[in-house]
C-alpha cells in the first residue's frame, strides 16, 4: 500500500478517532480509522444511533476528537477548512429563513454580491434558477435541500460532506436528488463523504462503503464498490454485482443492529 499513498495522498484520513459526549463518559466513537482518496465518493453506513453525525462533526472540525485525529490532506484543523463544505441533515433548519434562495447560496462567499453569475451557475446546477428570489418557507423540502446543496458547491470545495441529506424527503425526490448529487460530484471531481442509514443509497452512489459497528462505533469493514459509471437507478440496481454488494453490506449492518443490547434499543 505504501506506493499508492505516495502517489495519492488521502484527502481525508481518520486515524484512531475516539469521542465521548462528556469527559470520562461512555464513548460514542471508539478507535475509528479509514482513509479517503481525492475524487473518491465514500459512504458511511451503520445502525441508527451509532454516532454517524458525531463522526461527521469531527470530520468537519466542528468538534475535536478526544483521541486520535482527523487529517485533511495530511493537516490538522481546529476550525472547518475553507475548502470543505457540509450539507446538513435537516434542510429546514440549515437554511437561513431571513435570506432568499440567492442570498442563502451567496452566504459563504466573501465579497460576492447575491447577483453574481457564480450564484446563478450553482443554482442552475441544481435546477433552481427559477426560485432564486423566493424565501426558504416558499420552497418544498426537495427544493430546500437543493438550495443547501447549491450553497455548499458554490464555494468550490474539495471535500463535500453530506449528513443524511435525503432523509426527510419523499421517495421520488430522493431518487432525483441522488442522481443530481452524483452528477455534480463527478463533474466537479469532488471528494464526497456521505453519511446515511440507507444501504441501497450507499452502494448505489459510492466508490467505497464504510460500515460502522453499533455504539461505541468503530469501522467493521471497508467495501470497495466497483460498479461502472455512469450509474442508472434501474440498470445498475439490477446488476448481479449491485445485488451481491447490497446483500453483503445489509448482512453486516443487520448483524450490528442485532448486537444492540435490549435496553439501548428501547431507550429512544
Amino acid at each position: 500500500m505504501a506506493d499508492s499513498t505516495a502517489v495519492t495522498k488521502p484527502i481525508l484520513a481518520v486515524q484512531n478517532l475516539s469521542k465521548s459526549f462528556t469527559t470520562g463518559g461512555p464513548r460514542i466513537l471508539n478507535g475509528m480509522t479509514f482513509h479517503q482518496k481525492p475524487g473518491q465518493f465514500v459512504a458511511v453506513v451503520g445502525p441508527s444511533g451509532c454516532g454517524k453525525t458525531t463522526l461527521l462533526r469531527c470530520i468537519a472540525a466542528l468538534m475535536q476528537p478526544d483521541e486520535g485525529e482527523v487529517l485533511h490532506r495530511g493537516q490538522h484543523f481546529d476550525d472547518p477548512p475553507s475548502w470543505l463544505s457540509v450539507v446538513f441533515q435537516d434542510y429546514n433548519r440549515s437554511l437561513f429563513p431571513w435570506l432568499s434562495v440567492r442570498q442563502n447560496v451567496a452566504f459563504g462567499l466573501r465579497g460576492v454580491s447575491a447577483r453574481d453569475p457564480q450564484i446563478m451557475a450553482a443554482l442552475s446546477a441544481v435546477n433552481l434558477e427559477h426560485a432564486a428570489d423566493l424565501y426558504p418557507w416558499q420552497l418544498s423540502g426537495g427544493m430546500q435541500q437543493r438550495c443547501a446543496l447549491a450553497r455548499s458547491i458554490v464555494v468550490k470545495p474539495k471535500l463535500l460532506l453530506l449528513d443524511e441529506p435525503f432523509a426527510s424527503v419523499d421517495a421520488q425526490t430522493r431518487i432525483d436528488l441522488q442522481d443530481m448529487v452524483m452528477g455534480i460530484c463527478r463533474s466537479m471531481q469532488l471528494s464526497t463523504l456521505l453519511v446515511t442509514h440507507d444501504i441501497d443509497e450507499a452502494v448505489f452512489m459510492a466508490d467505497k462503503v464504510v460500515v460502522l459497528s453499533t455504539r461505541p462505533a468503530r469501522v467493521v469493514e471497508e467495501i470497495a464498490i466497483d460498479l461502472p459509471h455512469p450509474r442508472d437507478q434501474l440498470v445498475t440496481k439490477e446488476t448481479p454485482e449491485f445485488l451481491r454488494l447490497r446483500h453483503h453490506v445489509y448482512t453486516l449492518v443487520r448483524q450490528q443492529a442485532q448486537k444492540l443490547p435490549r435496553e439501548t434499543q428501547t431507550e429512544r
Binding site: L62, P80, V86, F88, R93, S94
Partner: peptide, 13 residues
Amino acid sequence: VDPTLIDVARVSG
C-alpha cells in the same frame, strides 16, 4: 438560535 445555523456559519468560515 438553531445550532445547525451556527454550524453552517462555522463551515462557511
